[in-house]
Amino acid sequence: MAGRRQGYAQERGRRGGRRQGDPGGPVRGGRVAAAVSVLGELLITFGVLLGLFVAYSLWWTNVLADRQADSLAHRLRDQWTHRPATGDTAPRHPRSFAVGDAVGFLHVPALGADSTVLIRMGTGTDVLNQGVAGVYRRPYAAAMPWERTGNFALAAHRDGHGARFHNLDRLHKGDPVVVETSDTWYVYRVDAVLPQTSKEDTGVIAPVPKESGFTRPGRYITLTTCTPVYTSRYRMAVWGSLVRTVPVDARRTPPAELR
């Protein structure tokens, strides 16, 4: 009887040993499950981080840029309101602007909620990231609206950092574009739209852009931004020509195109 019990114990031990050493047994299965669990947690963490990055890029940078642009806009209008009177009714503009200097405001009804955009000198990210439209300084120096001829070329972000030109693709031939300075409203009309071109195509901001249909020097405006939406692969351009100018009155009554 004792021998049989000893035999049963030895057999159970051998079976237990085989189960513990079985390559397809619980130990290996536990390791695979643990690896899958870790991988799942890593993927979830990556997804959360990616979501936070997208939220930061497309939402929070807009919030910060809107605050900066509003502050700069109020400061410029305050300067216009409190500038010393000279009795001279002729337009007065600085002879030159430094990078970051405020020039005026761009009004584009077709842009919708972002129809009024502060204009500053320069197109570097330090300027454009403040939720403004920047004036090109190279490779072609933009001509100011009050100059006798030239192309007033501007750029702005399409996504993030204010996204002032997010809806630039809404512009069509005949749409009004108005530039407001301290003394004058400059009213332009859209003449042509280039939906897509290479980011190296600097000719779109030339004094007489070839693809615009313009054939001789004039008083033009160019608006540029990235395309397609949410990418910076290509550029799009909108060209317009000056239709008329309207002196700013005491109430700063906007021209009919903005009313």
Rank of each mutant, 00 (worst) to 15 (best):
S212C: 05
Y56D: 11
L43V: 07
R83P: 06
Q79K: 13
A102L: 06
Y56E: 07
G47C: 04
P84Q: 11
S37L: 11
V99K: 07
A69F: 00
R83T: 14
A192R: 11
A34K: 12
K199W: 05
V193M: 01
D169W: 12
T116Q: 06
L72D: 05
I119M: 11
R28I: 00
R148C: 02
E11D: 12
E257H: 02
R216G: 05
D66F: 00
G150T: 13
G131N: 05
L258R: 01
A69D: 07
T184P: 05
R235P: 01
V187Q: 06
L168Y: 07
R170V: 02
G51L: 07
K210A: 08
A113D: 14
S182M: 15
Y234F: 13
G150Q: 12
P255W: 01
G25M: 09
Y230T: 14
P23C: 03
M236A: 09
S71V: 11
Q79C: 12
R148H: 08
T86K: 02
D114Y: 03
G25Q: 10
R148L: 03
A206L: 01
T123F: 07
D88N: 15
V48E: 10
Q6L: 13
D126N: 14
A206N: 11
S241Q: 13
R12G: 04
L258A: 08
D175G: 13
V243N: 08
R12F: 08
Y220E: 02
H93L: 08
V63M: 01
K173I: 04
A153H: 04
H166V: 00
V108R: 00
V135S: 06
E180R: 05
T197E: 09
A155H: 00
A133G: 15
S71W: 03
G162V: 02
A143S: 15
T89I: 10
G40R: 05
V27Q: 15
R219Y: 02
V132F: 03
L194R: 12
E211W: 09
R4T: 09
R251P: 12
A141D: 14
P139E: 10
V117L: 02
G51K: 03
R19P: 08
R12S: 07
D78R: 10
P84C: 08
L128N: 03
D22H: 15
R15K: 06
V132I: 10
V248Q: 05
P176R: 06
V177F: 00
P26R: 15
G160Q: 05
S241T: 11
D183N: 14
V36F: 08
P26Q: 14
I44F: 13
V177R: 01
V178W: 00
Y188Q: 08
